[in-house]
Design a binder for these strands. Structure first.
Lengths: 149, 149
DNA sequence: TTCCTTGCAAAACTTTTGCATTAAA
DNA sequence: TTTAATGCAAAAGTTTTGCAAGGAA
């Protein structure tokens, strides 16, 4: 049985599974076995994972998934708004399970990304958009360095 | 002679050259022929260029430059603060000749980047940084879509 | 049957690197 | 003469694609 709540108090696997199925259905994405594996891994909590990390994690846990399917699935999820793709440093894409509006800290020393909730940032003033355009979204990345002590 | 001012009123090539030499000297970068070509191209005005665009432009104008040198030089410039490297969409790096603090509009339809001067954005509130860290820089990209008319 | 999904391998693309050659100090 | 910069080709890393095989409707 794997219906227990884990040591962090995270939602039980069954609940995550159900949650993923519901969200995929809402997006009109057919819940195949591989997609469910990727979704349950990524959507289990707010996190930022790369395609390679997801592939490695799935392989480690014994799943049979190809690299092509991981990439295709992540692109599919992102295009349907199930996850969000981030461009942080250009070296690779990061996939964010949190699609609610939010911003990021980027720790330059470790590479770690940390979510910044919307209420933590307030704009007093934003530039007027060019004619014929409107704001689709705002990407804010606050780069962090180690404070010299 | 190519010391005329061009039709846009931009600085004359000689002035740009001198400007580049001075800035490279300030950064302790030896002004070799290839570096000067890349610098005069990129630093002639505020703009965003990819490595391939720079390589193509140099080749078109008859310069003998290798791809490796273009990449190595751009990395060198960026590491010395002569230019700024941007991660906008993950597909490739963009090199920004404007190293003064500023933000960007990103037109999703055309891919075009537009500078947003600092005074156009004011933060009323920013999140507290995690312990032991301080802000190194703030990257703000305002994504634009075409306004439905 | 028909359509969609998957895996595998190959390809595409951007960027980096090794090394011999060239240019500069 | 000694060090640094360049060009070329190859390699590396990430992501996409073609196609045959498998699976669901």
């Amino acid at each position: 049985m794997d219906s227990n709540v884990d040591s962090n108090g995270a939602a039980a696997p069954e609940a995550i599974k159900a949650h993923c199925q519901r969200r995929m259905a809402d997006c009109g994405i057919r819940p195949t076995a591989q997609r469910m594996r990727i979704a349950t891994l990524l959507l289990s909590e707010p996190q930022h994972l790369s395609a390679e990390q997801i592939l490695a994690s799935l392989r480690t846990s014994g799943a049979r998934v190809s690299k092509a399917t991981v990439y295709n699935t992540l692109n599919l999820f992102a295009s349907h708004g199930l996850i969000r793709q981030l461009s942080v440093d250009g070296s690779r894409a990061w996939f964010d399970s949190n699609v609610d509006a939010h911003y990021h800290f980027h720790d330059l020393a470790s590479g770690v990304l940390i979510d910044v909730p919307v209420p933590e940032v307030e704009f007093r003033r934003l530039p007027p958009t060019p004619p014929g355009t409107e704001v689709e979204g705002i990407d804010l990345i606050i780069r962090l360095r180690r404070k010299p002590s």
